[in-house]
Simulated assay, not measured.
Amino acid sequence: MTLRVGTRASALATTQSAQVAERLSELTGIETALVTVSTEGDRNSRPLTEFGGQGVFVSALRDALLAGEVDVAVHSLKDLPTAQAEGIALAAVPTRVDPRDAVVARDGLTLGELPTGSRVGTGSPRRAAQLNALGLGIEVVGLRGNVDTRLGKVRTGELDAVVLAAAGLRRLGRIEEATELLDPLQVLPAPGQGALACECRADDSDVVGLLARLDDDATRAAVTAERSLLASLEAGCSAPVGAWAEVVDDDGTPQLWLRAFVGDPSGAPSIRLSATGSVQDPVGIGERLAAEMLAEGADSLMRAVVP
Protein backbone atom coordinates (compact mmCIF):
# COMPACT_ATOMS: atom_id res chain seq x y z
CA MET A 1 0.00 0.00 0.00
CA THR A 2 1.21 3.49 -0.92
CA LEU A 3 -0.55 6.55 0.45
CA ARG A 4 -0.76 9.35 -2.11
CA VAL A 5 -0.28 12.69 -0.35
CA GLY A 6 -1.67 15.67 -2.24
CA THR A 7 0.18 18.98 -2.04
CA ARG A 8 0.42 22.34 -3.71
CA ALA A 9 3.48 22.73 -5.91
CA SER A 10 5.27 25.56 -4.08
CA ALA A 11 8.54 24.88 -2.31
CA LEU A 12 6.94 25.50 1.09
CA ALA A 13 3.91 23.31 0.39
CA THR A 14 5.95 20.40 -0.91
CA THR A 15 8.39 20.69 1.99
CA GLN A 16 5.72 20.62 4.66
CA SER A 17 3.79 17.87 2.87
CA ALA A 18 6.97 15.81 2.58
CA GLN A 19 7.55 16.25 6.31
CA VAL A 20 4.04 14.99 7.03
CA ALA A 21 4.49 12.06 4.64
CA GLU A 22 7.81 11.12 6.21
CA ARG A 23 6.40 11.24 9.74
CA LEU A 24 3.39 9.20 8.66
CA SER A 25 5.68 6.55 7.20
CA GLU A 26 7.74 6.47 10.41
CA LEU A 27 4.65 5.93 12.56
CA THR A 28 2.83 3.44 10.33
CA GLY A 29 5.48 1.75 8.18
CA ILE A 30 3.41 2.58 5.10
CA GLU A 31 5.01 4.01 1.97
CA THR A 32 3.95 7.49 0.84
CA ALA A 33 4.23 9.43 -2.41
CA LEU A 34 3.66 13.14 -3.05
CA VAL A 35 1.19 14.20 -5.75
CA THR A 36 1.25 17.88 -6.76
CA VAL A 37 -2.03 19.67 -7.45
CA SER A 38 -2.39 23.15 -8.96
CA THR A 39 -4.75 25.46 -7.06
CA GLU A 40 -6.50 28.70 -8.00
CA GLY A 41 -4.49 30.59 -5.40
CA ASP A 42 -1.25 29.48 -7.08
CA ARG A 43 -2.42 30.42 -10.57
CA ASN A 44 -3.88 33.85 -9.71
CA SER A 45 -1.50 36.60 -8.65
CA ARG A 46 -4.17 39.15 -7.70
CA PRO A 47 -4.73 40.01 -3.99
CA LEU A 48 -6.78 37.29 -2.32
CA THR A 49 -9.48 39.77 -1.28
CA GLU A 50 -10.16 40.49 -4.97
CA PHE A 51 -11.09 36.97 -6.02
CA GLY A 52 -12.56 35.40 -2.91
CA GLY A 53 -9.65 34.34 -0.72
CA GLN A 54 -11.69 31.74 1.14
CA GLY A 55 -10.49 28.29 0.07
CA VAL A 56 -8.52 29.29 -3.04
CA PHE A 57 -5.56 27.15 -1.94
CA VAL A 58 -7.75 24.28 -0.76
CA SER A 59 -10.55 23.46 -3.23
CA ALA A 60 -8.43 21.73 -5.88
CA LEU A 61 -6.82 19.46 -3.27
CA ARG A 62 -10.22 18.56 -1.88
CA ASP A 63 -11.49 17.84 -5.40
CA ALA A 64 -8.52 15.52 -5.93
CA LEU A 65 -9.37 13.73 -2.68
CA LEU A 66 -13.00 13.19 -3.61
CA ALA A 67 -12.02 12.06 -7.12
CA GLY A 68 -9.74 9.39 -5.64
CA GLU A 69 -6.61 10.95 -7.15
CA VAL A 70 -4.96 11.35 -3.72
CA ASP A 71 -5.57 9.72 -0.32
CA VAL A 72 -4.41 12.58 1.91
CA ALA A 73 -4.34 16.35 1.41
CA VAL A 74 -1.98 18.56 3.40
CA HIS A 75 -2.84 22.23 3.84
CA SER A 76 -1.58 25.19 5.82
CA LEU A 77 -4.40 25.24 8.34
CA LYS A 78 -4.80 29.02 8.11
CA ASP A 79 -5.93 28.53 4.47
CA LEU A 80 -8.69 26.10 5.44
CA PRO A 81 -12.29 27.40 5.28
CA THR A 82 -14.10 27.03 8.59
CA ALA A 83 -17.13 25.32 7.03
CA GLN A 84 -17.06 21.53 7.08
CA ALA A 85 -16.52 20.07 3.60
CA GLU A 86 -18.95 17.32 2.71
CA GLY A 87 -17.30 13.91 2.46
CA ILE A 88 -13.98 15.11 3.90
CA ALA A 89 -12.54 14.62 7.39
CA LEU A 90 -9.98 16.81 9.13
CA ALA A 91 -8.24 13.71 10.42
CA ALA A 92 -5.08 15.23 11.90
CA VAL A 93 -3.68 18.52 13.13
CA PRO A 94 0.01 17.84 13.85
CA THR A 95 1.96 19.77 16.48
CA ARG A 96 2.08 23.46 15.64
CA VAL A 97 5.51 24.79 14.68
CA ASP A 98 5.50 28.54 15.41
CA PRO A 99 2.46 30.83 15.26
CA ARG A 100 4.41 34.09 15.04
CA ASP A 101 4.95 36.49 12.18
CA ALA A 102 8.54 37.07 11.09
CA VAL A 103 10.16 40.24 9.74
CA VAL A 104 12.85 40.01 7.10
CA ALA A 105 14.34 43.49 6.74
CA ARG A 106 17.31 45.04 4.98
CA ASP A 107 20.55 45.42 6.89
CA GLY A 108 19.36 43.14 9.70
CA LEU A 109 16.94 45.76 11.04
CA THR A 110 13.87 45.26 13.22
CA LEU A 111 10.57 47.03 12.52
CA GLY A 112 11.31 49.61 15.19
CA GLU A 113 14.70 50.38 13.64
CA LEU A 114 13.36 51.03 10.14
CA PRO A 115 13.41 54.72 9.15
CA THR A 116 10.12 56.59 8.79
CA GLY A 117 8.63 55.97 5.35
CA SER A 118 10.17 52.51 4.94
CA ARG A 119 8.17 50.21 2.66
CA VAL A 120 7.05 46.97 4.32
CA GLY A 121 5.37 44.29 2.20
CA THR A 122 2.52 41.97 3.16
CA GLY A 123 -0.51 40.60 1.36
CA SER A 124 -2.49 40.24 4.60
CA PRO A 125 -5.11 42.79 5.75
CA ARG A 126 -4.62 41.36 9.27
CA ARG A 127 -0.92 42.16 9.23
CA ALA A 128 -1.50 45.55 7.61
CA ALA A 129 -3.97 46.53 10.33
CA GLN A 130 -1.65 45.57 13.18
CA LEU A 131 1.50 46.96 11.60
CA ASN A 132 -0.16 50.30 10.98
CA ALA A 133 -1.51 50.30 14.53
CA LEU A 134 2.06 50.22 15.86
CA GLY A 135 2.50 53.84 14.78
CA LEU A 136 6.02 53.36 13.39
CA GLY A 137 5.58 55.60 10.36
CA ILE A 138 6.14 52.76 7.89
CA GLU A 139 4.31 52.35 4.58
CA VAL A 140 2.58 48.97 4.31
CA VAL A 141 2.63 47.74 0.70
CA GLY A 142 0.51 44.94 -0.81
CA LEU A 143 2.50 41.83 -1.70
CA ARG A 144 1.84 38.29 -2.91
CA GLY A 145 4.00 35.41 -4.09
CA ASN A 146 6.01 32.52 -2.71
CA VAL A 147 8.70 32.93 -0.07
CA ASP A 148 11.51 33.48 -2.57
CA THR A 149 9.50 36.12 -4.44
CA ARG A 150 8.73 38.04 -1.27
CA LEU A 151 12.25 37.87 0.15
CA GLY A 152 13.60 38.88 -3.26
CA LYS A 153 11.79 42.23 -2.96
CA VAL A 154 14.03 43.01 0.03
CA ARG A 155 17.23 41.81 -1.65
CA THR A 156 16.61 44.03 -4.69
CA GLY A 157 15.76 47.06 -2.56
CA GLU A 158 12.19 47.30 -3.86
CA LEU A 159 11.01 46.90 -0.26
CA ASP A 160 12.73 47.62 3.03
CA ALA A 161 11.14 44.62 4.74
CA VAL A 162 8.52 41.92 4.39
CA VAL A 163 6.41 40.19 7.03
CA LEU A 164 5.51 36.53 6.64
CA ALA A 165 4.79 33.47 8.75
CA ALA A 166 7.73 32.26 10.84
CA ALA A 167 6.53 28.67 10.44
CA GLY A 168 7.16 28.76 6.70
CA LEU A 169 10.73 29.93 7.18
CA ARG A 170 11.29 27.25 9.82
CA ARG A 171 9.96 24.47 7.63
CA LEU A 172 12.19 25.63 4.78
CA GLY A 173 15.22 25.78 7.08
CA ARG A 174 15.53 29.53 6.54
CA ILE A 175 14.49 31.01 9.88
CA GLU A 176 17.93 32.60 10.26
CA GLU A 177 16.90 35.05 7.52
CA ALA A 178 14.34 36.59 9.89
CA THR A 179 15.59 39.81 11.47
CA GLU A 180 12.78 39.83 14.05
CA LEU A 181 10.09 37.48 15.35
CA LEU A 182 7.05 39.51 16.35
CA ASP A 183 5.53 38.98 19.79
CA PRO A 184 2.12 37.35 19.16
CA LEU A 185 0.63 39.49 21.92
CA GLN A 186 1.60 42.56 19.88
CA VAL A 187 0.84 41.24 16.38
CA LEU A 188 -1.63 38.38 16.60
CA PRO A 189 -1.20 35.68 13.94
CA ALA A 190 -3.86 34.40 11.57
CA PRO A 191 -6.16 31.74 13.03
CA GLY A 192 -4.39 28.41 12.56
CA GLN A 193 -1.06 29.97 11.59
CA GLY A 194 1.88 27.61 12.09
CA ALA A 195 -0.34 24.52 12.05
CA LEU A 196 -1.03 22.02 9.29
CA ALA A 197 -4.27 20.28 8.37
CA CYS A 198 -4.31 16.70 7.10
CA GLU A 199 -7.56 15.78 5.35
CA CYS A 200 -8.83 12.56 3.84
CA ARG A 201 -12.10 11.10 2.62
CA ALA A 202 -14.50 10.77 5.55
CA ASP A 203 -15.52 7.25 4.56
CA ASP A 204 -11.93 5.99 4.34
CA SER A 205 -11.72 4.68 7.90
CA ASP A 206 -8.28 3.12 7.35
CA VAL A 207 -6.68 6.43 6.39
CA VAL A 208 -8.61 8.29 9.10
CA GLY A 209 -7.09 5.89 11.63
CA LEU A 210 -3.59 6.24 10.22
CA LEU A 211 -3.70 10.04 10.20
CA ALA A 212 -5.01 10.12 13.78
CA ARG A 213 -1.53 9.11 14.91
CA LEU A 214 -0.28 12.55 13.78
CA ASP A 215 -2.87 14.49 15.77
CA ASP A 216 -1.71 16.71 18.66
CA ASP A 217 -4.36 17.36 21.33
CA ALA A 218 -3.09 20.79 22.45
CA THR A 219 -2.71 22.08 18.90
CA ARG A 220 -6.12 20.71 17.94
CA ALA A 221 -7.76 22.49 20.90
CA ALA A 222 -6.00 25.79 20.17
CA VAL A 223 -6.80 25.95 16.47
CA THR A 224 -10.36 24.77 17.09
CA ALA A 225 -10.91 27.79 19.34
CA GLU A 226 -9.31 30.12 16.79
CA ARG A 227 -11.40 28.72 13.94
CA SER A 228 -14.57 28.79 16.05
CA LEU A 229 -14.01 32.51 16.57
CA LEU A 230 -13.42 33.00 12.83
CA ALA A 231 -16.55 31.04 11.92
CA SER A 232 -18.69 32.93 14.45
CA LEU A 233 -17.43 36.24 13.07
CA GLU A 234 -18.37 34.91 9.60
CA ALA A 235 -14.92 35.99 8.44
CA GLY A 236 -12.79 34.39 5.75
CA CYS A 237 -9.09 33.59 5.87
CA SER A 238 -8.31 36.97 4.21
CA ALA A 239 -10.26 39.03 6.76
CA PRO A 240 -8.42 41.43 9.10
CA VAL A 241 -8.74 38.97 12.01
CA GLY A 242 -5.94 37.76 14.24
CA ALA A 243 -6.35 35.00 16.82
CA TRP A 244 -4.02 32.99 18.99
CA ALA A 245 -4.95 30.32 21.51
CA GLU A 246 -2.67 28.36 23.79
CA VAL A 247 -3.07 25.74 26.48
CA VAL A 248 -1.68 26.99 29.80
CA ASP A 249 -1.36 25.42 33.23
CA ASP A 250 -3.61 26.96 35.89
CA ASP A 251 -2.65 25.40 39.23
CA GLY A 252 -2.41 21.98 37.66
CA THR A 253 -5.52 22.36 35.49
CA PRO A 254 -5.05 22.99 31.76
CA GLN A 255 -6.89 26.07 30.54
CA LEU A 256 -7.28 27.47 27.06
CA TRP A 257 -6.52 31.17 26.52
CA LEU A 258 -7.76 32.83 23.34
CA ARG A 259 -6.75 36.32 22.24
CA ALA A 260 -8.23 38.00 19.18
CA PHE A 261 -7.96 41.14 17.06
CA VAL A 262 -10.16 42.74 14.41
CA GLY A 263 -9.04 45.99 12.84
CA ASP A 264 -9.16 48.36 9.94
CA PRO A 265 -6.06 47.99 7.69
CA SER A 266 -5.29 51.67 8.30
CA GLY A 267 -4.51 50.77 11.90
CA ALA A 268 -7.58 52.29 13.53
CA PRO A 269 -10.14 51.56 14.74
CA SER A 270 -9.46 48.10 16.14
CA ILE A 271 -10.79 45.67 18.73
CA ARG A 272 -8.66 43.45 20.97
CA LEU A 273 -10.26 41.05 23.44
CA SER A 274 -9.42 37.77 25.15
CA ALA A 275 -11.22 34.87 26.81
CA THR A 276 -10.36 31.77 28.75
CA GLY A 277 -12.08 28.51 29.56
CA SER A 278 -11.83 24.76 29.72
CA VAL A 279 -9.56 23.09 27.22
CA GLN A 280 -12.51 20.75 26.61
CA ASP A 281 -14.62 23.63 25.26
CA PRO A 282 -12.62 25.29 22.47
CA VAL A 283 -15.67 25.86 20.28
CA GLY A 284 -17.58 27.58 23.07
CA ILE A 285 -14.63 29.83 23.93
CA GLY A 286 -14.35 30.95 20.32
CA GLU A 287 -18.07 31.56 20.02
CA ARG A 288 -18.26 33.61 23.22
CA LEU A 289 -15.29 35.79 22.31
CA ALA A 290 -16.68 36.36 18.81
CA ALA A 291 -20.00 37.47 20.30
CA GLU A 292 -18.17 40.01 22.46
CA MET A 293 -16.26 41.32 19.45
CA LEU A 294 -19.40 41.59 17.33
CA ALA A 295 -21.03 43.55 20.15
CA GLU A 296 -18.08 45.96 19.92
CA GLY A 297 -18.60 46.46 16.16
CA ALA A 298 -16.27 43.86 14.62
CA ASP A 299 -18.65 43.21 11.74
CA SER A 300 -18.35 46.77 10.43
CA LEU A 301 -14.54 46.57 10.48
CA MET A 302 -14.57 43.35 8.48
CA ARG A 303 -17.13 44.60 5.95
CA ALA A 304 -14.83 47.49 5.09
CA VAL A 305 -12.22 45.03 3.78
CA VAL A 306 -13.82 41.78 2.65
CA PRO A 307 -16.20 41.85 -0.33
Results as ranks from 00 to 15, higher is better:
residue 183 D to T: 05
residue 272 R to P: 01
residue 208 V to F: 07
residue 262 V to D: 02
residue 164 L to M: 13
residue 233 L to W: 07
residue 234 E to W: 05
residue 224 T to I: 01
residue 204 D to G: 07
residue 259 R to W: 12
residue 186 Q to C: 05
residue 173 G to F: 11
residue 166 A to W: 03
residue 196 L to I: 10
residue 200 C to E: 08
residue 200 C to T: 15
residue 174 R to H: 08
residue 183 D to Q: 05
residue 268 A to C: 02
residue 185 L to D: 09
residue 212 A to G: 14
residue 267 G to M: 06
residue 189 P to K: 09
residue 209 G to M: 07
residue 218 A to S: 14
residue 195 A to D: 13
residue 195 A to V: 13
residue 166 A to Q: 06
residue 233 L to F: 09
residue 218 A to H: 15
residue 267 G to V: 11
residue 260 A to Y: 06
residue 255 Q to C: 05
residue 224 T to L: 01
residue 232 S to D: 06
residue 209 G to I: 04
residue 220 R to S: 12
residue 226 E to D: 10
residue 243 A to D: 09
residue 161 A to P: 01
residue 172 L to F: 04
residue 252 G to D: 06
residue 203 D to Q: 10
residue 218 A to C: 10
residue 175 I to D: 14
residue 234 E to N: 14
residue 187 V to L: 09
residue 224 T to K: 00
residue 173 G to Q: 13
residue 197 A to N: 10
residue 255 Q to P: 00
residue 229 L to Q: 02
residue 206 D to G: 00
residue 261 F to Q: 01
residue 261 F to C: 00
residue 211 L to D: 03
residue 228 S to A: 15
residue 224 T to G: 04
residue 218 A to Y: 13
residue 236 G to Q: 03
residue 186 Q to R: 13
residue 174 R to N: 06
residue 237 C to Y: 00
residue 258 L to A: 08
residue 260 A to E: 07
residue 220 R to N: 06
residue 172 L to N: 05
residue 247 V to Y: 09
residue 245 A to K: 08
residue 191 P to A: 14
residue 187 V to R: 03
residue 217 D to R: 14
residue 261 F to H: 14
residue 239 A to M: 06
residue 202 A to Y: 06
residue 176 E to K: 12
residue 219 T to M: 01
residue 175 I to Q: 15
residue 238 S to T: 15
residue 209 G to P: 14
residue 224 T to D: 07
residue 195 A to H: 12
residue 180 E to G: 13
residue 233 L to V: 08
residue 210 L to G: 09
residue 205 S to E: 15
residue 244 W to Y: 13
residue 162 V to L: 01
residue 224 T to E: 09
residue 183 D to Y: 08
residue 170 R to P: 00
residue 189 P to Y: 09
residue 272 R to G: 00
residue 198 C to Q: 12
residue 178 A to Y: 13
residue 178 A to Q: 11
residue 166 A to D: 05
residue 234 E to I: 02
residue 226 E to Y: 07
residue 242 G to C: 09
residue 190 A to S: 15
residue 212 A to E: 12
residue 254 P to Y: 12
residue 198 C to V: 15
residue 207 V to I: 15
residue 259 R to E: 06
residue 188 L to T: 05
residue 165 A to R: 04
residue 257 W to G: 00
residue 230 L to F: 02
residue 183 D to V: 03
residue 228 S to V: 04
residue 223 V to A: 08
residue 181 L to Y: 00
residue 190 A to R: 12
residue 162 V to H: 04
residue 163 V to I: 13
residue 270 S to C: 06
residue 259 R to Y: 12
residue 174 R to K: 11
residue 161 A to G: 03
residue 180 E to R: 11
residue 272 R to S: 05
